[in-house]
Every structure is written in C-alpha cells, then in structure tokens.
Computed example of a mutant assay.
Amino acid sequence: MSPARGPDGGTPGEGKPRRFGLRRWLRRWVWRLALLLLLLPPVLTLVYAVVPPVSTLMLGRIAQGLWVDRDYVPIEAISPHLIRSVVASEDARFCAHAGIDWAALEGQLEALGEGERVRGASTITMQVAKNLYLWGERSYVRKALELPLALMLDAMLTKTRLIEIYLNIAEWGEGVFGAEAAAQAWFGKPAAELTRTEAARLATALPNPLVRNPARPSAGHVRLARLNRARAAEIDPHLDCLPQTLLAR
C-alpha cells in the first residue's frame, strides 16, 4: 500500500526535518556569534594591555578612506600638565572609583527624573570603553553597554594604562587622535613639552573637539581653560593611583 501524499505530491511531513535542521543551524550560529561578541572585549583588553589600541572611530575613518593622524606615545612622553588637566576636566574621581562614578551617575539619573538636562556622568574609563568597543552616537543602549565594559577595563588594566590609552585615542580635531598628534597639530611641539595653559586648552576642547580650537580658543574656551588650570593645580592629592614620577617631571 503506497503512502498517502500531500497536495504537492510529497508524503506528509516531507521537508520538515530540513526546516528544523536549518533552524537548529541558525540558532547554533547565533549563539556562537553572541559568545564571540561577549568574549571579544576581554580578549582585546588583554591584547591592549601591551599593544597600542585603535578606537572604533579611527577604524571607521580608515574604512572610509579618511585621514587619521595618530602617533601613540607612552605616558612618560606626555606632559604631566596634560594628565592633570584631563583628569580635572573629565573625571576628577578617576583614582577613587572602579570604572564607574556611581555617585555622579545617581545624581544624573535623579536629574533625568526631574526633567533636567543630563550631562552623562561618563568617567575616563567609560569613555575608553566607548572609544574602543562601541559607537559614537549617544543613546541609552550605548550608555548601558559602557557600564559593564568600564568595570571590566578597570579590573583588567592599571589606572596608568587606562589614562595612557585614553590620552592616545581621544579625538582632538578632525582626524586628529591622541595627545602627540594634537600637540603637534595645534602647538607644533611634542606632547611632552605642553605648558599648563596649552594642556588646559586641550583638556577643555575634549567635550567638543570638532568645534573648539585649542590654538585659537574663543572667549568661552579661554574661561574654561582658566578654570581647568586652577583645578589641575590642586588635583595631585586625588592622583594617588598614578606613579608620582609621572607628575614630578
């Protein structure tokens, strides 16, 4: 007795194993991709502990054939004035937290709940996480992803390495990345020779590097740099996580 056939002439259920097999294959590869994405940041962080990293923004420009100016230098080749100014401007509690400034984050969440303007409460470590592993456009999704990545970076890298990476991947103009390229582009000198005033102008340009010109600052930029220079002069007691030899040069 021949088996019953369906409307298309095939036996009932014919082709289902193939569909189930394809679904199982897709599910397997989705899980593998998810595992790869989960493991990629810690693996890259181990590499970046010894190898100069590049940011996603730099990679994006390179992929588009756009100009990128970056000369990675060790922290010892960067002026201590710039180290002080950047920490004073971007993350004064850099040495006190483990990647996330929870007090600042809580304050910003309260401000958001009250309808006030939120500044982001990003630490230097969170900005390193964004620059290395995420995208530039602001969103709550990106901010949520920054948190675990910042905790991971702080646990795996020293504070000295974190500030060195940040100063070498920060954007300081169109296609200008890192302290050395910025010092050469804006002041025609190595990063090691930056003065207090030049360092303050560079540090206060970071929030808006495509608009603020450290070499020809606006009146508002000059005021910000003046405030930053005063804060940087008093930041040393809060930099106990960095070798004092870096600051005594």
Rank of each mutant, 00 (worst) to 15 (best):
Glu164Asn: 06
Leu22Gln: 07
Asp154Thr: 02
Lys159Cys: 06
Leu227Lys: 12
Ile62Val: 03
His238Asn: 02
Leu162Pro: 01
Trp31Ala: 10
Ile75Arg: 09
Arg212Met: 04
Leu82Glu: 09
Leu46Lys: 00
Tyr133Trp: 05
Phe187Ser: 05
Ile169Asn: 10
Ala219Gln: 15
Ala215Ile: 06
Ala233Trp: 05
Ala205Gln: 08
Gly10Cys: 14
Leu157Tyr: 02
Arg212Gln: 07
Phe187Gly: 02
Ala232Pro: 14
Asp69Leu: 14
Ala230Leu: 13
Pro207Ile: 02
Pro53Gln: 01
Ala49Trp: 08
Arg212Cys: 03
Thr197Ile: 11
Leu167His: 03
Glu198Gly: 09
Ile165Val: 11
Pro148Ala: 06
Asp71Glu: 15
Ala200Trp: 01
Lys159Asp: 08
Ala34Arg: 12
Lys16Tyr: 14
Leu39Gly: 04
Pro17Arg: 04
Leu109Glu: 04
Thr56Ile: 00
Val118Asp: 04
Gln64Ile: 03
His238Pro: 00
Val54Trp: 03
Gly6Glu: 08
Lys159Leu: 07
Asp91Lys: 12
Val47Arg: 13
Ala219Val: 14
Leu153Asn: 04
Asn213Tyr: 00
Gly13Thr: 08
Pro80Ser: 08
Ala111Cys: 08
Lys130Thr: 03
Glu180Lys: 07
Glu76Asp: 15
Pro42Arg: 13
Gln108Tyr: 06
Ala179Lys: 05
Ile78Thr: 09
Ala92Arg: 15
Ala203Arg: 07
Val86Lys: 01
Ala88Glu: 08
Arg212Tyr: 07
Leu194Ile: 10
Ile235Gln: 03
Glu114Ile: 03
Gly107Ile: 08
Gln127Gly: 07
Lys16Ile: 14
Ala77Met: 05
Gly178Leu: 09
Ala215Pro: 12
Gln64Thr: 02
Arg19Glu: 09
Asp71Ala: 15
Glu110Gly: 10
Val68Tyr: 00
Leu239Trp: 08
Gly175Met: 11
Gln108Ile: 02
Arg5Cys: 14
Ala205Thr: 07
Ala34Leu: 15
Arg93Leu: 11
Val128Cys: 07
Leu224Arg: 13
Arg249Pro: 13
